[in-house]
Every structure is written in C-alpha cells, then in structure tokens.
Amino acid sequence: MIEFKLEGDFIPLIQLLKATGLVHTGGEAQIVVTEGEVKYNGQVDYRKRLKVKRGDEVEFRSQKIVVV
C-alpha cells in the first residue's frame, strides 16, 4: 500500500499515478486510465481528469494508493 500525502484540495488522477511512480509518463497514465486498468474507490473509472481527494483510494496493478 502506498500512502500519498496530499498538499492541496485534490490531485488529478493522472498526476497521482505519476507522483507515486506507478507509471513513468502522463501519456502512459492516460492510456491505463482509458483502458480501465485503474479503480477509484473500488470502481473502474475512465476519467483522466478525475480529482482525487483525501480519503480516496486508487488501485492499479495490485497496488493500492491511499490519499491522506
């Protein structure tokens, strides 16, 4: 599990995937989101500009990110 400390009100999903090192580029992040590889709070979510906030959980390739 990865615990990500949020410094503002939200972080876009694509930036979160990059910031945690689960993808290398923004382009790669966009691809995995549009292909349905990312779960947001337990549901597959295809929104690239999704605003992830404190208390949210994101899952990608057996990794769970908890935003605090």
Rank of each mutant, 00 (worst) to 15 (best):
M1I: 02
M1K: 14
F4D: 05
K18I: 10
V23A: 03
L16N: 05
K5I: 15
G55N: 09
G42S: 06
D56T: 05
G21D: 12
F10R: 01
K48N: 01
A29L: 11
V38H: 05
L6I: 06
A19K: 13
T34P: 04
Q43K: 10
E57M: 08
T34S: 14
V68G: 05
E59V: 11
G8M: 01
R47N: 13
P12H: 08
E37G: 08
I14G: 02
H24V: 02
V23T: 02
T34K: 14
T34Y: 02
E3F: 13
E3V: 12
Q15I: 04
V32W: 03
L13K: 00
G42F: 05
F10Y: 12
K51D: 04
L13Y: 07
K64A: 10
E57N: 14
E7L: 02
G21P: 14
P12S: 14
Q43T: 11
L22G: 03
R61G: 06
E7C: 01
I31L: 08
K51E: 15
K48M: 06
V44H: 09
G27L: 13
P12N: 13
R49H: 09
L6S: 05
V44F: 06
V44S: 14
V66A: 02
F4I: 06
D56I: 03
K53L: 00
V68C: 02
T20Y: 11
R54E: 12
Q15L: 15
K39N: 15
G42P: 00
L6A: 09
L6F: 00
K18Q: 07
L50P: 09
L50A: 10
I2K: 02
K18L: 12
G27H: 09
Y40A: 07
M1L: 12
G36L: 06
V33K: 00
V44L: 14
P12K: 07
G42H: 03
K5T: 07
L6K: 04
D45G: 13
T34D: 10
S62F: 14
V66S: 10
G36A: 03
E59W: 10
G21N: 11
E57R: 05
V52A: 08
K48Q: 14
R54Y: 07
E35V: 06
A19R: 11
T20G: 14
L17T: 01
V38Y: 01
L22M: 05
E59P: 04
